[in-house]
């Protein structure tokens, strides 16, 4: 982490996405105003209509680079930011729009825009495909408590990586009988924690939105899931938040180092 000035300038921009992670930031409400006292908020166009600044100590990017304009804005943000943070699953991985990477994306385009053939339709990639990313705040949406803590840590010069633990570590069902044991697909064992297992807490399966742990044992999880579900169901679960490719790559890499 670089040495930041006393009052670092922050810029927050979004590419193509739902902007839910920016709203998660706003949802901090009065606490956000408290935290921002330590910063100079240089750009956050959800709440201001002022000219952008030429330099940000911390640039925060949400969303997927889909259009040429998205890519240009992303690169510009990298150029003028000392420290670049990928905010949320879209910027980190690709989220729901990445599902098209696993089917015929041209057919998908035709389904929505039957009469136009000039719509940009690239493969969905993490922003790290185009620029160097210094830190990731994962999730769909982000856990805004984690975001608040990150900003406070940056101010104190002690930002650390998110612990490499699976969601199971935080899951309240571990004792009571996990979803996998009840034959429900769950990606908790291979997904990085820090969400306080919010999905399983509220009766949903984990679909991996925060991305893989360092050494996911995907083979074992696949065997377990395919003992009660089809391969297609397994694959679809990996695709919802676009994590399939990243998860498989990470699992293969972990195997190589063993």
């Amino acid at each position: 982490m670089p040495n930041f000035p006393k009052k670092p300038v922050i810029g927050i921009i979004s590419l193509t996405c739902c902007e839910g992670c920016q709203f998660a930031i706003l949802d901090l409400g009065e606490r956000l105003l408290e935290i921002l006292k330590h910063y100079d908020l240089g750009e956050f166009s959800l709440v201001e209509d002022l000219p952008a600044r030429p330099h940000y100590d911390i640039g925060i990017v949400e969303g997927s680079p889909i259009t040429a304009d998205d890519v240009a804005r992303l690169k510009e943000m990298r150029d003028k930011s000392g420290f670049l943070i990928a905010l949320g699953n879209c910027a980190h991985i690709g989220c729901v729009q990445a599902i098209k990477n696993y089917v015929s994306k041209d057919e998908k385009l035709k389904y929505v825009y039957s009469q136009i053939d000039k719509i940009e339709n690239p493969e969905i990639v993490p922003i790290a495909h185009y620029v160097k990313v210094d830190y990731i705040i994962p999730g769909c949406p982000i856990n805004n408590e984690e975001f608040a803590q990150n900003l406070l840590d940056i101010k104190d010069g002690k930002l650390s990586l998110i612990p490499d633990q699976p969601v199971c570590y935080e899951c309240p069902l571990v004792q009571a009988g996990c979803l996998l044991q009840r034959k429900i697909i769950c990606l908790g064992p291979v997904t990085r924690a820090g969400c306080r297992a919010i999905c399983t807490t509220h009766g949903q399966q984990c679909l991996g939105c925060r991305g893989p742990v360092n050494e996911p044992n995907l083979d074992s999880l696949q065997r377990q899931i395919e003992s009660f579900a089809s391969r297609e169901e397994y694959k679809h679960a990996l695709q919802v938040y676009g994590v399939q490719k990243m998860l498989i790559d990470q699992a293969n890499q972990a195997k190589k180092f063993k």
């Binding site: 739902c18 902007e19 889909i66 259009t67 998205d70 098209k100 089917v103 385009l109 389904y111 719509i119």
Partner: peptide
Amino acid sequence: THEGARLIEAILVGRSYEEAPLITARICGV
């Protein structure tokens, strides 16, 4: 509009109905 096309309607086709409420929520964060 300067948003890219996410093709949400199209990507749902061929997938389980149970995913629709989850995936379509991601159309909009507000």
